[in-house]
């Protein structure tokens, strides 16, 4: 089985993140850039499928600037066979739709049986890319998986919902997006780190993919961020005064916030 894992480099969600004043895009230059956390779960799932099914290959696919190489190396140190890096100055400013066009072109070239990705990225959190890619490629989209079972060409996921889960099946080729409940990603071993540098990373430009520059980047973006503002500081919480009904009020609050 040929598996491609989509890996995006994002600013560390644990640190303070900013949008740039001049163009409302994520400030990546001053951020500590890391692999989108959810993508590590997708990669782990791919590696587990590879270990369980002989003859499988796992390729990382990243679209991003030069410094995304760091994230590609980190991903490779976890164990996949190689990577493809879509790198082109004209990609700056690409929106979700444009990203799906570029990644779809790269995936057509790679012809995977299975595409795995995180259910969302921690910077944009749109959750739309897997569906867009499935539409462009004409393959099934199994999204929001908390469990994935592979039986030959048959894929079964448990799709996480607010109330529980749904069982959804599809045949390959397909795209599966995963949540962080699906597994526990491995840490790169020292051998993995040493081997990562020697693994093949193919760099592709928009021209290589047959996508014209005006279909991507600022030129091709159908959506733009008009303005942005910092989240307002947290307001004071709910104060429950215990007048004999305190316990009930606490439970009501927890229920209203879906904690219980």
């Amino acid at each position: 089985m040929k598996i491609v894992v989509l890996v995006k480099q994002v600013p560390d969600s644990g640190a303070e993140r900013n949008l740039r004043a001049e163009d409302n895009t994520v400030d990546r230059a001053s951020a500590n850039n890391v692999i989108n956390e959810m993508d590590e779960y997708a990669l782990e799932e791919a590696l587990r499928i590879q270990e369980a099914h002989g003859g499988s290959t796992v390729t990382v696919l990243t679209m991003g600037p030069e410094r995304a190489t760091e994230s590609i190396r980190k991903a490779l140190s976890m164990g996949p066979d190689g990577a493809v890096h879509v790198l082109d100055d004209a990609l700056s400013g690409t929106d979700a739709l444009g990203t799906s066009k570029v990644l779809a072109a790269a995936l057509k070239r790679l012809e995977p049986d299975l595409v795995l990705c995180g259910a969302e990225s921690t910077d944009a959190r749109g959750q739309v890319l897997p569906h867009m890619l499935a539409e462009r490629l004409g393959v099934a989209a199994l999204t929001g998986a908390r469990k994935l079972t592979v039986d030959g060409s048959q894929l079964t996921i448990e799709r996480q919902t607010e109330e529980g889960y749904e069982v959804v099946t599809a045949a390959t080729p397909a795209i599966v997006s995963v949540w962080d409940t699906i597994n526990e990603p491995r840490y790169p071993s020292f051998k993995g780190i040493m081997a990562a540098k020697k693994k093949p990373v193919e760099t592709l430009t928009l021209a290589d993919l047959g996508v014209s520059a005006d279909e991507a980047g600022w030129a091709g973006a159908l959506t733009t961020v008009a303005s942005h503002a910092k989240r307002p500081p947290r307001s004071a919480g709910v104060k429950v005064t215990d007048d004999g009904e305190g316990g009930t009020k606490l439970v009501e609050f927890l229920v209203s916030e879906k904690f219980v």
């Binding site: 140190s77 020292f190 780190i193 540098k197």
Partner: peptide
């Protein structure tokens, strides 16, 4: 080098 730094990061994570 790069590998040493990657090793540091991985150990820190663990």
């Amino acid at each position: 080098g790069e590998e040493r730094q990657a090793l540091r990061k991985a150990v820190r994570q663990l």
